[in-house]
Design a protein around this nucleic acid. Structure first.
Lengths: 169, 169
DNA sequence: ATAACATTGTTGCATTTGCAACATGTATTT
DNA sequence: AAATACATGTTGCAAATGCAACAATGTTAT
């Protein structure tokens, strides 16, 4: 498995190459690599434990179980994917009988509202149970204060970048 | 632009659907979404500022400029991509004259060592300059202590998940 | 009322990605 | 010495992704 290297190897004394700021030293790149590292390991673990749905389908299922009567557009906003891919994942979940879509209206607009089926709930509960031991082992490293700090740091990161782009608009 | 929703909408009083732990409430999913959100915005910003290389090529260029005589495998470890994609990115950078590869040996094994060219350094410096105002604006939100805390939190996250998989091996 | 615009979901397409298989060359084992 | 295993880089392929274009439907402007 890949190793996440944290320290930058210091350059040996070299010609006249100037040293400047590096993007790979920024906190946002640190977060990007960390997230990729964790995601890779978690997907590996997930695929060992679950063969019924893909990791992305699992996340959609979990999201839907928390939000009733979502239209596809709102679901897309929650999972940060575009409408096209959100629809495709729902196609697969619907084919497996784990979610159902119903034509409805929202603000006088035709939408397809998504809901989890009993079969979907059953699978989701089963998956959560299979994950419980791993989840508990993960949580042991963090105490409550660590968690608060981590979430606050992530929020700060989002804010610091959102500010950049809003200025751009 | 999409909104990152942090709070889970509480379910209205409903039938007998049981409530259970949700993956989307875990810190690692929080980090995953945050990273994706930030990456999307930063790539958007990058593409406005730079047309010479892709965001991934920029990261490879920045990484190579910090590590001399990397072989492709070691570069792949640093950027958390597989050997195939690492090689493909280097093909593109080499074609643009920004990096050069030399056949060499490491531990008596044939490897292709990668180094940045003068032309590559020049472009990298230019890109860093173009990014400076945005970088400074981002940094203003964090003080030194915040940064330390954030990096420590990320490290803790990596450790908590690495521990899971090492047990699996 | 008609035209221009906006919203939702779908389809087509090109890009990115990772995995498996392969070629080449080295180390280890028998 | 021959056979097996290993490391590095490349190629082919399938899956995931995002963007642009489109259809259908509702809203707003002239």
């Amino acid at each position: 498995m890949y190793f996440l290297q944290q320290k930058v190897i210091s350059m040996p004394t070299e010609t006249s190459k100037p040293t400047f700021m590096h993007y790979i030293d920024t906190p946002s790149y640190d977060m990007e690599l960390t997230s990729k590292y964790c995601k890779t390991l978690l997907v590996q673990l997930f695929n060992k434990i679950c063969s019924e749905v893909s990791p992305e389908e699992f996340i959609v299922l979990d999201t839907i179980s928390c939000h009733q009567d979502l239209c596809q557009r709102d679901l897309a906003k929650l999972i940060l994917k575009d409408r096209a891919n959100t629809g495709r994942i729902l196609d697969s979940l619907e084919k497996k009988g784990l979610v159902e879509r119903s034509n409805d209206t929202k603000n006088n607009r035709l939408v397809r509202k998504v809901n989890i089926t009993d079969c979907g709930i059953e699978l989701l509960e089963s998956l959560i149970l299979r994950f419980k031991p791993y989840h508990e082992k993960m949580c042991k490293i963090f105490n409550d204060e660590d968690l608060l700090i981590l979430r606050a740091s992530l929020k700060k990161m989002r804010d610091s970048i959102a500010q950049l782009v809003e200025i751009q608009i």
